[in-house]
Design a protein around this nucleic acid. Structure first.
Length: 735
DNA sequence: CGCAATCCTG
DNA sequence: CAGGATTGCG
């Protein structure tokens, strides 16, 4: 006779007996996989990537002269950009410009992307410092809080050339009565003095100190993540605004340009005006057309393709504006104004050329950034992603909004390797489009870079600097074990958005942050495992501890092995953690498969950057699902027995039975998913198995469930293809 | 030994 | 649901 006290029975049966049902272990993290990941990883560090960076920087420097022209004109844009600092990725153009502008200050926060080429990072650091100005510590950090990691020697190589060009351009600009030349010269002085007055060593030390700053900002990561969605939209909007702003500045320049014609060539008064007018009208036309599609709303939803078109239009507009005087001038007057004024001609040509080139470059860069990722045409520094392209084809979580975000996320990734963008290399942890916070799940140490091989090898520098090397940091001062660049981004965390609280603020009650349970777990884990190693951590306010939790967790997870795993840079579109949505998806998948293999999980969670932690967690999830499932089955079976049921025929599972409701409540709480019929069948079989086993008194055997497990594990059915889509939830639940 | 499944606990 | 413990396989 079965024990009527099921509770007692259960506890009695809970002798530590492994009920391994012998389900074949599908190992997705086999060594072969490691090898693959490693290969990818190394390929990511191939010298070509680094050299490419350098080349880019050279180009960029050569363009320095152009910045001088634009510098003044864009000054306002610059201040605007400052206002936007909180929005890291948003200031692509501004940053590009700033790169150039900063040249005069002798500081070159740009090209930090070179940090990617780890090998040179240390060597270059001295350069950086030799150039960094002592009185502006901020300059060692990018506006995004990213510490300056390296500086290319090419800076100096170009210096002479740049100065010559700069002098020329400045000369030209001085001729423009309305242009303030003070700022220019001031900058120039700075540039002349600052770099040489600081010894490289001193600067280096100083630089190192400064680099610690970002670490504290790590705390903002959580909020950052939660805010990323908002940020993306804001980012996009800001970027477009900047483009517009640049347009304005360009127009102003052009106006000045024509004013000069007026003042220097009174004879050509009419001509000049005409040209200007025509230019204006044309510009206005373009703008009028533009503005139609430029409402904030539309901008948010503007898809990269459109954006490219718009950018091209911008270029065209500029070209038109600049070519007009050239053609029309000579046309209306046999000999254009230029003919009479060689200097004016020179000015015109120079300005046109430089403006055109500079502007085109900027725009092209932005466009490239926008367009490259969606097509997965990543720069060489990025190893080919193994994730199926389909993932991106399917994007569009029902809302255009999400689509845009997903692309933006790509955007964030792409700018990383772009040496032209100082801040581009700032990782965009929130670069994912998910609305959920990053759980940061960690359980065991892991060394493999499973499915994320691609994601893995992005930043050579990160990979190259072994954690062990930086581990020394993580002592009393709670320094971050990561390579410094990693800590940077939290600074500018746009967190501002959703979680109004700012990262920098100390937070006595982390819970108020709407932290996910995972986060809490992390904290727990951290305290239980790492506090010893970080004597100071207990003293830190929750905020600080929290900031570290990510890195700590990750380092634990990575176990000092594959840096790519802990690199927030890993930057691909892959999520580094499992989100609540992933959990939900897993639960729904449970309706189809109770015993998914790790490979299957990788297939169906293709948007997740798999590593051992993630794999284990997913497996654990399904283990938990099974646990609940079997417990319910056993409970229900015993209940049926107690209710006098004697035949399995009487046991059936319908959509309105208690057991089903319990299961549905657990795996499909929102009840927004139609549970497949097959699941009912399996559940019924399971129930009957339990029933029969209990009736037969098999439950006296400590491992009596094992037989049932064996049966059930064969009943897995195919998971619908739609679950392979990262956005399957939206697609499934809105059908 | 690492991994995974399960059991158990919180 | 996660962490820890236990167990057993390869």
């Amino acid at each position: 006779m079965p024990d009527h006290d099921s509770t007692a029975l259960l506890s009695r049966q809970t002798k530590r007996r492994r009920v391994d049902i012998g389900v074949k272990r599908t190992v997705g993290t086999a060594s072969a996989f490691f090898a693959k990941a490693r290969a990818t990883f190394f390929s990511a560090m191939n010298p070509q990537g680094s050299e490419q960076d350098v080349e880019y920087s050279v180009v960029q420097h050569a363009d320095g002269e152009k910045s001088n022209v634009l510098r003044k004109l864009l000054k306002r844009a610059n201040s605007y950009e400052d206002a936007m600092m909180p929005f890291p990725g948003a200031t692509i153009i501004s940053q590009l410009l700033k790169n150039n502008m900063n040249k005069n200050g002798g500081t070159e926060p740009s090209f930090q992307a070179s940090g990617l080429s780890s090998t040179g990072s240390e060597v270059h650091q001295e350069d950086v410092c030799s150039n960094s100005s002592r009185d502006s510590p901020q300059e060692c950090l990018s506006p995004f809080g990213r510490p300056t990691m390296s500086q290319f020697d090419v800076d100096r190589l170009c210096d002479e050339h740049l100065r010559a060009k700069r002098a020329r351009v400045e000369n030209i600009i001085r001729g423009m009565s309305h242009s303030p030349s003070v700022a220019l010269r001031g900058n120039e002085n700075e540039r002349e003095i600052a770099p040489q007055s600081v010894s490289p060593r001193e600067s280096y030390r100083e630089n190192k100190r400064k680099q610690k700053l970002p670490q504290q900002q790590q705390q903002s990561f959580q909020q950052l993540v939660s805010a990323r969605k908002e940020q993306k939209r804001e980012e996009r909007r800001q970027l477009k605004q900047q483009l517009e702003d640049m347009q304005k500045q360009l127009r102003q320049l052009q106006e000045k340009f024509y004013q000069i014609y007026d003042s220097t060539d009174s004879e050509n008064d009419e001509d000049g005006n005409l040209s200007e007018d025509s230019m204006r009208s044309e510009t206005m036309d373009v703008r009028a057309g533009d503005s139609v599609g430029r409402s904030d709303n539309e901008m948010c939803e503007l898809d990269p393709g459109q954006f490219i078109d718009r950018a091209r239009a911008l270029i065209r507009e500029q070209e038109v504006a600049e070519n007009k005087p050239k053609r029309e001038g000579p046309k209306e007057k046999e000999q254009g104004p230029n003919a009479f004024h060689p200097e004016g001609k020179h000015l015109a040509e120079t300005l046109k050329q430089e403006l055109n080139t500079a502007m085109s470059q900027v725009v092209d860069t932005v466009v490239k950034v926008f367009s490259s990722k969606p097509s997965r045409q990543l720069p060489q520094v990025f190893p080919p992603l193994q994730i199926p392209q389909a993932r991106f084809a399917v994007n569009g979580e029902n809302h255009n909004f999400h689509t845009a975000n997903q692309r933006l996320q790509c955007f964030g990734d792409v700018i990383i390797p772009n040496p032209l963008d100082t801040f581009g290399s700032v990782p965009m942890p929130g670069a994912t489009d998910q609305t959920e916070a990053l759980p940061l799940v960690v359980r065991k140490n892991s060394s493999d870079q499973a499915a994320g091989p691609a994601a893995g090898g992005h930043h050579a520098s990160l990979h190259q600097s072994p954690l062990s090397a930086t581990a020394g940091f993580s002592t009393s001062s709670f320094r971050h074990p990561f390579p410094l660049p990693l800590m940077a981004y939290p600074f500018q965390s746009p967190l501002g958005a959703p979680s109004a609280s700012f990262p920098g603020k100390d937070r006595s009650s982390p819970e108020s942050l709407d932290l996910t349970r995972e986060t809490t777990s992390l904290r727990t884990k951290m305290s239980s495992h790492h506090m010893n190693h970080h004597p100071c951590s207990p003293a830190h306010p929750p905020s600080a501890a929290e900031g570290l939790s990510l890195s700590l967790i990750k380092s634990e997870c990575g176990d000092l092995q594959d840096m790519s795993e802990i690199s927030p840079y890993s930057g691909s579109a892959m999520q580094e953690g499992l989100s609540p949505n992933h959990l939900k998806k897993a639960k729904l998948m449970f309706f189809y498969t109770r015993y998914p293999s790790s490979n299957m999980l990788k297939t169906y969670f293709s948007d997740v950057k798999f590593n051992r932690c993630i794999t284990s967690q997913l497996i654990k999830w399904f283990s938990n699902f099974r646990e609940f499932y079997y417990i319910q089955m056993e409970k229900y079976a015993r209940q049926a027995i107690n209710d006098g049921v004697t035949s399995t025929e009487e046991l059936s599972i319908t959509r309105d039975c208690e057991l089903y409701r319990a299961l549905n409540m657990h795996y499909n709480k929102a009840n927004d998913f139609e549970v497949p019929e097959r699941f009912l069948e399996v559940a019924q079989i399971t129930l009957r198995e339990f029933f029969n086993a209990i009736i037969a008194g098999k439950d006296v055997d400590p491992s009596w469930k094992k037989a049932i497990y064996k049966v059930i594990c064969k009943l897995d059915s195919e998971v619908p293809e739609i679950f392979k889509s990262p956005n399957c939830l939206q697609e499934l639940l809105h059908e």
